[in-house]
Design a binder for these strands. Structure first.
Lengths: 149, 149
DNA sequence: ATAGATGCAAACGATTTGCAGTCTG
DNA sequence: CAGACTGCAAATCGTTTGCATCTAT
């Protein structure tokens, strides 16, 4: 069968549908983190007919399958999703303002986390590391005027 | 313009009330993490008359003041709060089943996070590290010793 | 044909807010 | 007394679920 579209290696679904293609495609194109709602809006703006529910369900299935990374920020409600760039466990440094993110790979921290689990007799240890800050693009330029502390 | 009083510290409250005492007291007594709702129930069961709203507001104020640690788990909705044991930044290894938690202090990771921010030109870098697993009390298969090598 | 996928609307659960009444400094 | 605090109810908000319909295989 010549000329097939990349399956994205998804075994999380048993049927191939237009909307699931769209979700994967959008996620692949946009490297940053998105909320389900934002993704939904993005898809609709792209002319794709898809329901919010489906977006949620697809996102959920994908992260279950380990194809997505999910993060939550302490003050911001909801989850943020991003396609997992590699098969390796990664973390991100996300800009709180523009949401631009930098991928972090640190075997040291992975090991630290795992070892820590063993030390405390925990099994099935999982870790979530969320780094956030203000990137240089968003750094409030030190200007003159009504200064604040 | 008026001289603003920049209050960074522990001036979260200006009045002392019965319910606030109770929240702080309960938090101090129970070392683990609690959800606002659970804390509320706990307080009521202790015979304290307090509204859920107040619990939320108090918890919020306390964490703003840096007196509490707040974590969120990926699948579990809501936040979990715990009194900050020391003034140092700490992390926790939380059992996903019984919620028992172990306090982790690692300057190495703190530095790693901070340095990472600098490397990527991020300012105001903050990090959230959540470790979870199944503690030995809750291990599904009550075997002796870690079977993994 | 048939199990899986979709989507709308309603349900949900956690958290917030409007507002009137209460209490502390 | 004034402003801070409280609490109920209603409003939000992100997410999930019921259910009837559609569709890929």
């Amino acid at each position: 069968m010549p000329g097939e579209i990349d399956d994205h290696g998804v075994a999380a679904f048993s049927k191939r549908t237009r909307q699931r293609e769209a979700v994967l495609s959008s996620l692949a194109d946009h490297p940053g983190f998105v909320s389900a709602q934002t993704l939904h809006a993005r898809l609709r703006q792209a002319g794709i007919r898809i329901g919010l529910t489906t977006v949620y369900r697809t996102l959920h299935a994908l992260s279950e399958a380990g194809l997505l990374d999910v993060i939550r920020q302490t003050r911001t409600p909801g989850h943020l999703f991003a396609a997992r760039p590699t098969t390796e466990h990664q973390h991100y440094l996300v800009c709180r303002r523009c949401r631009r993110s930098v991928t972090i790979t640190s075997r040291a921290v992975e090991q630290w986390a795992t070892q820590l689990g063993h030390q405390h007799h925990f099994t099935d240890v999982d870790h979530i590391i969320e780094l956030s800050g203000i990137c240089h693009h968003c750094t409030p330029t030190p200007r003159h005027g009504p200064a604040r502390a």
